[in-house]
Design a binder for these strands. Structure first.
Lengths: 116, 116
DNA sequence: CGTCTATGCATCACAAATCTATGTATTAAA
DNA sequence: TTTAATACATAGATTTGTGATGCATAGACG
């Protein structure tokens, strides 16, 4: 990814999130989708993506299916029912985290906001 | 810390942020400050804190000074000039990251916000 | 006086997540 | 025919944080 360190822990949530609004996605498509949706800010590397997808599948949160496009293989992923529940939890957790960090970091010279 | 994976990459920024609003802080004080300011959500572990502080010092972003309180040692840290600049950059980077993730994650069933 | 808790620093072995690099292969464009 | 894009995958290295452990002072409580 781009911001490297900061993204840690967010990858699986991002993948789940993307799968929650698309019936199915394959790896490469997912990287392009995230790239586009993030304004080229989040670039998921293959070395991160595939292990992450494999782990999600091993954990039973997604299932996959090979599809041949001509001679080329694509592996489509989709959420399982447990995966859908996990997605909701995962998003909530990430939201909570973002909120906490924002509150901790926010009042800062340069972006100073007077007390209410 | 509490959220483990999610916090990756944010620790040094949090430390810098805290030092930017206090003339000096020692390790233990820093953990208590963050704990308090985050509503007990972010609990910096000693095994994370001290290595992080040492690294910031090695990078020249903070300096430290030993102070004896009776027989007990305290090591106070404060920002250097480069550290102050690095803090601003670091905060900006973190803000950008939070914004990007939020935009990517936000529109989600349960928190659905109709298009404008 | 003894014990428990808090204060205060530090380091090591370990685990988890991601990155870089590498490998293989198809397909479309130049 | 060479390059870029598409498409998957894995191995090794790196980074970061955790848990465990160690040492020591200090205050509270009985």
């Amino acid at each position: 990814m781009s911001n490297t360190e900061l993204l840690k822990g967010t990858l699986s949530t991002i993948i789940l999130r993307m799968l929650s609004e698309h019936p199915r996605l394959y790896g490469y498509e997912l990287t392009q989708l995230v790239k586009e949706r993030s304004g080229d800010k989040i670039l998921i590397k293959e070395g991160s993506l595939y292990p992450a997808l494999h782990k999600l599948e091993a954990d039973g949160l997604v299932t996959s299916e090979e599809v041949y496009i001509g001679k080329r293989v694509r592996r489509y992923y989709k959420l399982t029912e447990p995966g859908k529940k996990a997605t909701l939890l995962s998003i909530e957790e990430l939201r909570g985290f973002l909120k906490t960090i924002e509150e901790l970091i926010l009042p800062f010279p340069g972006n100073y906001v007077p007390a209410k």
